[in-house]
Structures are given as C-alpha cells and as structure tokens.
Nucleic acid binder design. Sequence first.
DNA 1: TTTGTTTATATCGTTCACGATGCAAATATA
DNA 2: TATATTTGCATCGTGAACGATATAAACAAA
Lengths: 148, 148
Amino acid sequence: MIPEEFKLDNQLCFRLYTASRLLTQAYHPLLSEQGITYPQYLVLLVLWEKDAQPVNDIAKRLHLETNTVTPLLQRMEKEGILTRKKGETDARQMIVSLTKKGSGLRRKLADVPSTVGSAVICDSVTPDTAHDLFRMLDDIIKTLSEKQ
Amino acid sequence: MIPEEFKLDNQLCFRLYTASRLLTQAYHPLLSEQGITYPQYLVLLVLWEKDAQPVNDIAKRLHLETNTVTPLLQRMEKEGILTRKKGETDARQMIVSLTKKGSGLRRKLADVPSTVGSAVICDSVTPDTAHDLFRMLDDIIKTLSEKQ
DNA sequence: TTTGTTTATATCGTTCACGATGCAAATATA
DNA sequence: TATATTTGCATCGTGAACGATATAAACAAA
C-alpha cells in the first residue's frame, strides 16, 4: 500500500498545474484568433496598465525571469505588437512599448475576461466565492516568491 | 482608465499559472537530486499507484495529451526509470512499467511531499483550509475538463 | 583612475505543452 | 470478406519556462 501523501489526489501542486493548464486552454481559441498566446496576453495586460516599461519590470510583475520574457518580447516585436528600444537614462535597459497594433488589441480582446470567466463558474467557484480562492492563491504566491 | 476586468490582479488564470510555476520550482531541488523533473515525478506517482499502464491511461490521469506524455516517457525510459513494451492483447498500446530504479525512487523521494508541503503553509492555507482549496480546484478542473 | 561588483538583458540547451498530422492496429459497417 | 472508421501512439514544429552562462553598462571601492 502507498502512503497517503504519495497519492496524486493529495497533491496541491498537481491541482494547480492542471487547473492552470486547462484554464489557459480555455483562453486559446480567443487569443489565437488575434495571433497571440496566453503568456503574450499577460504581457499585454501589463503594458495596457502602464506602457513603456523596462524588461525587468514586466518580468517582475509576471514573476518570470528575463530569460523567459526576453524571447517572448522578441517574438511579439516581430509580430509588430510592441517595440524595444534602449533606455535613455540607463543604456542597459530595454524599454518595451506598445505599437498601435498592440494597444489596439485591447479592444479586439475586450470580451476575453467575461467569456473565460463564465466558463470557470461552477458549484464551488462563483463570482462570490472567487474572492476566497484569490486570497489563498495570493497567499501561496506571496509565501513562495519570498523564499527565493 | 482600464476596465477592471482587464487588470492583471483580477485574473484567476494568472494566479493559477503563477502559483503552479512557483510551487513546481519548490519541487525542483528535491527532484533534480534524483535526476527527474516535476512532470516525470507525476508519472512516477501514477505508476507507484498502479504499475504497468498503457500510455493513454497515464495521459488521462494527468489530463495531458499523448503527444506530451510519449516523449516524456521516452526520456524516462532512456534514464532507465521505466520500460515501454507493446501490449499483448492490443498491439496498439504501449504498456509502461517501472524498473527497479523507478520503483526504488519511491524511497529516495519519500520526504518530498512533507518538505514541499511545509513550504506552502501560510496564513490562509494550512492543512485545515487546504481542503477548501482542493475542493475549488477540483471543481474548476472538473468543469473545464468536461468542456473538451 | 583602475579594479571589482552589481545590474539589466541576452544567449544557449533541455524539457515540457500542444496543435497538426501520420500510421498501424482494432473495430464497425457494408 | 472488403471497406470505412475509430483508437492508440508517435512525430513534427512552435512557443514557452528555466538553469547556466555571457556581456555590457552602471556603480562602488581601492
């Protein structure tokens, strides 16, 4: 017999991993329509909030390393969604700014949050109870990101 | 001003994605010590529960497609962790079985669940409240996996 | 000023994920 | 029994993630 803690059903990480993948898949048809991926959508969310940010700020906001974000941004630059140019005050920085196409995607993707949101609503997760879930996930993220 | 639902902070998927990645990173030092990755650890959990399963059963258990699982298993076979051989009743199937090394890893990874578990404990997620989180995640997974 | 250290970004290699496609074995239908 | 369809797995291409490493600019110390 296997010890309880070795059972897949007992693993938090597996649930997070699966829920994350499945929910990302729910975004896919909506995003691919505009030729972008989910991580690219996250970059857009960050830049829609505040345009013209250095790579590092974007990476920090997404809890990603620059070696993940840099190629992501390069692909998005190639698609004409954003531009990357050297910082004027600090020449090490690369300032990432939205192009017309990039900021225009905000309107074209306007329905994404509500469309995906309604797909996740189930017995235990409704707009009401989502708050509890958010709090727990934020706490996990905070605890783990402080360990690095 | 940006509509509320477009703010990164309001996105469930981003939280799941981040929490999943950070928690997987917490597994990394423990798993790499034995030369395996987190998805490979998941395969081991499945096979420790029940040895000698076809590729399809493993994929279904992990909510992954076979085109993800097949290369994963091939790498694990090359590492001598498992074997893959054609099914006797159904020649299309590939039956995956643990080697001595593969089942031996169970003892060597015995401390992983408790070690990682204690790293996630924070104010809002304790062994007590984890149950609520599990229920919500299971519900999300169930809802989304039924949509395919 | 020279040297050393930190910081910001980039490059490389490996391993997932996953859509699209291919193929052979099994099964259903004609 | 032929033919068509489904099933199980594999291959391919692309885009993440991420550890390790590199490079140049900024900054600190000698």
